[in-house]
């Protein structure tokens, strides 16, 4: 029993130390600028989790992050550095608007169709990068960065010319009432259940199916995967597809499940960077689909709670960003080190 206890303690220690280090360094930063770190952190965490309303806002912020984290986490599981979530998310949002805002369907069906459209468009957008990797061996980092930019400008173009809200230059057509998830309170809507269900489904896929086994095997040891008869093309396709569906859902959740705008702004401001933040979330969640849920809740809490630090303690917005960044990096560090170690091991 003591053996087990030790091993549990050992695996629990890094994140605990990471949290402590992150909070400590953040505190030093606050102290050095003359703020009281205790007040700062209390404002931060009370603002993010201190009341049901706070929880709802924090969860609203974390909803898209849960699924953009899945994109990266599944990629890492398969040994792919898939940073395409950003672009897929834009495309997914456009898909959600196209069906949710431009087509009239009966209630219920409309919501399902719009959500499916978001995921589908996100998934389809994964195909070019996947095919390039499968047939031409183009590295996913290179192709996904480029596809992210293509998606960015393409969606801007769509907002300007095709899914435009006539009379409102600053945003696209909002989702119709029938294509909106019910508001649970504050900015939180029922879409969070869909998102969590998706994460759980991906967990099941990864750990309880043959496909997931192949994917993880390919990620852990490509040579062994080949030996076991795993088809890399299938793994690549599957990985990108899941990534696309997940990020598409993230984009859709910002449209169909985020009041009050229910649409995308012409700057893409309410989408921008959610995909890249997903990488941090995935790293904190140790590239595990369930870990991603909790890490996203934490991330969303920081995103929402930061404003209380600013409002109550007077810490500037930039400093809040820096403190949050330190905490996030400290939390992600164990996983980053693990990945670096593994990459080095593979090279040897």
């Amino acid at each position: 029993m003591s053996e087990r206890l030790w091993s549990t303690l050992r695996s629990v220690a890094p994140p605990v130390v990471a949290i402590a280090v992150g909070l400590f360094v953040g505190a030093l930063l606050m102290l050095s600028f003359g703020f009281d770190p205790v007040r700062g952190y209390v404002a931060l965490f009370r603002g993010s989790y201190g009341s049901p309303e706070a929880w709802m806002e924090s969860l609203a912020f974390s909803t898209p992050l849960m699924v953009t984290a899945i994109t990266f986490a599944v990629g890492m599981s398969a040994g792919l550095f898939n940073i395409c979530a950003e672009g897929h998310m834009y495309m997914g949002a456009a898909g959600a608007i196209a069906v949710g805002g431009m087509v009239s369907l009966p209630p219920g069906l409309h919501l399902v169709a719009a959500t499916a459209a978001a995921m589908l468009v996100g998934g389809l957008w994964a195909l070019p990068a996947a095919l390039l990797k499968m047939w031409r061996g183009v590295h996913e980092v290179v192709s996904t960065i480029m596809f992210n930019w293509i998606a960015f400008w393409f969606v801007l173009y769509l907002i300007r010319f095709h899914i435009t809200d006539p009379g409102r230059a600053e945003r696209a057509t909002p989702a119709m009432i029938t294509a909106r998830y019910p508001v649970l309170g504050g900015s939180l809507t029922g879409v969070i259940f869909v998102v969590i269900a998706f994460c759980v489904a991906i967990y099941f896929l990864l750990w309880h199916t043959g496909l997931g086994y192949e994917l993880r095997l390919a990620g852990d040891n490509p040579d062994a995967a080949r030996y076991a008869g795993v088809s890399f093309r299938r793994v690549i396709l599957l990985t990108f597809l899941i990534g696309g569906l997940a990020a598409g859902l993230a984009g859709g959740s910002q449209i169909l499940g985020r009041p009050p705008s229910w649409t995308v702004y012409a700057t893409l401001g309410n989408l921008l960077n959610l995909g890249f933040q997903g990488i941090g979330v995935a790293l904190i969640g140790r590239n595990h689909p369930i870990g991603a849920i909790f890490a996203a809740v934490f991330f969303g809490g920081l995103a929402h709670g930061g404003r209380f630090m600013e409002y109550e303690v007077g810490v500037s917005a930039e400093m809040v960003g820096a403190i949050n960044g330190i905490i996030v990096i400290a939390l992600a560090l164990p996983e980053i080190l693990r990945i670096v170690k593994r990459v080095r091991a593979v090279k040897e």
Binding site: R216, L217, D220, N221, A224, R226, Y227, A228, G229, R342
Partner: peptide, 17 residues
């Protein structure tokens, strides 16, 4: 190098075939 996936568990390594 090719016979095992070192990051996976014993049970999972037994499942490769």
């Amino acid at each position: 190098r090719i016979g095992t996936a070192e990051g996976m568990s014993l049970a999972e390594n037994l499942m490769m075939r």
